[in-house]
Amino acid sequence: MVRLITHNLLACHVKGCNTNNFPLQFRDIQIELREAEFNPDFLKGFMPKIEWKALVDAARQLGDTSLPLEQPEMLDDEFLKNLHHVLLEVKEV
């Protein structure tokens, strides 16, 4: 039951875990969608904290392919809306 924004901040801290264990893998995937208010300023502020590849991988595992493999330099509205949806509205349950 985590939103991808949280999932992206979780790193495995168990002894014996290394960077390959990041991010945590999903099991028995089910997703839930919940509408959240679109806030471009928040997203721009949060961008530097995201591990981009992990986010794209997680989104793809959940069937969302809207994000580009590389973090774009131009943050246009369409990109931000996709990012918003993936980070804040998709929840793995």
């Binding site: 901040l9 919940r34 959240a36 208010e37 679109f38 471009p40 918003h84 804040l88």
Partner: peptide, 21 residues
């Protein structure tokens, strides 16, 4: 406090200016 100034057409169910872990 950090709602975007432009009007949104739907009434949002969640605010998203901060992550609350």
């Amino acid at each position: 406090s950090v709602r975007t100034s432009r009007p949104t057409h739907f009434s949002p169910s969640l605010t998203s200016s901060t992550v609350y872990l």
